[in-house]
Design a protein around this nucleic acid. Structure first.
Length: 279
DNA sequence: ATACCGACCTGTCAGC
DNA sequence: TGCTGACAGGTCGGTA
């Protein structure tokens, strides 16, 4: 489901709705698949903590947790009291903020009861999502596409023999770009997905750097892409799917030149491009 | 290093 | 109506 713009939209919604709230108790389902840390560790870490901030690192949602402030001054409290809850939504994961009375959806794997009376739920049918706990300073590696300079961007890919699209999807290089935004960025930059990164010119990299950031910014502004079932923390759909120029448009006319959009499989993923506009 | 493939899961949709 | 196969926003590990 979620790439950088979708996760960013969800994070903004969560920050607005649960930051400052306190997690009173946690229920975790019996499925082990979504858990990267043991259920007992997750539950024990979340319970009693205040959600100080919700932010994003690549496609990961990061909840900064802190122990509630007390009157007593314990030197160790601030150190032991902080932790991070990391949520990766995989393909179909969703974070839902709702009233306790709301029906518990199938594939609900975690429910956190909040002091405000609401609940924060993690729902994920395919269970490719992952929940984990980190002490502090979580870093998934890679650089943020919206922060990287053109120089550093070029350095990431220079000389690699891998197809440029595979490189864009490599989260250890650039974090947050997934299948949709890789295809859309390459279209705007006029580069075919199979081109070797090493064969991309400096000028094309410059264009790609701009395209990636432009596509991500526009997508965030429209609340992400709702292709099948994506909704944000408020249950709202995004609208960037209406702006897709190649993704999911196999056989349809290119919006620029009218040529039929092609689909090929690259690294096991559907890849869409215009054979006329992209070289 | 790199690239391809299956595995991990469930759901949906097109075609017969 | 129901079966089958292809496909889905992601990542990991194995193998050549």
């Amino acid at each position: 489901m979620p790439e950088l713009p979708e996760v960013e939209t969800i994070v903004r919604g969560l920050e607005r709705r649960v930051a400052g709230d306190t997690i009173e108790s946690v229920w975790i389902g019996s499925r082990k698949q979504p858990l990267k840390s043991p259920a007992a560790t997750i539950a024990a870490t979340l319970e009693g903590k205040r959600v100080a901030r919700v932010h994003r690192a690549g496609k990961h949602i990061v909840f900064d947790l802190q122990a509630p402030t007390t009157n007593s001054r314990k030197p160790a409290a601030s150190k032991n009291g902080s932790a991070q809850w990391i949520v990766h939504l995989g393909m179909t994961g969703r974070m839902v903020v709702c009233e306790p009375a709301a029906e518990i959806e199938k594939h609900t794997h975690l429910i956190a009861k909040l002091a405000s009376g609401r609940e924060l739920r993690f729902v994920d049918p395919r269970m490719f999502g992952k929940l984990s706990i980190h002490r502090e300073g979580f870093d998934p590696g890679g650089v943020e596409p919206l922060e990287v300079s053109e120089e550093n961007f070029v350095q990431l890919f220079r000389g690699r023999k891998t197809p440029i699209k595979s490189a864009l999807l490599n989260q250890k290089l650039l974090r947050g770009v997934g299948n949709i935004y890789a295809d859309e960025s390459l279209f705007r930059a006029g580069i075919r997905p199979r081109r070797r990164a090493a064969a991309v010119t400096r000028q094309e990299f410059s264009k790609l750097h701009r395209s990636v950031r432009e596509v991500l910014r526009e997508a965030i502004a429209l609340g992400g892409s709702s292709v099948s079932d994506y909704v944000d923390a408020d249950g709202e759909e995004g609208f960037f799917q209406l702006e897709h120029r190649v993704y999911g448009r196999e056989g349809e006319p290119c919006r620029v030149c009218g040529t039929a959009i092609r689909r090929v499989v690259l690294a096991g993923r559907s890849s869409h491009y215009c054979p006329q506009c992209q070289k």
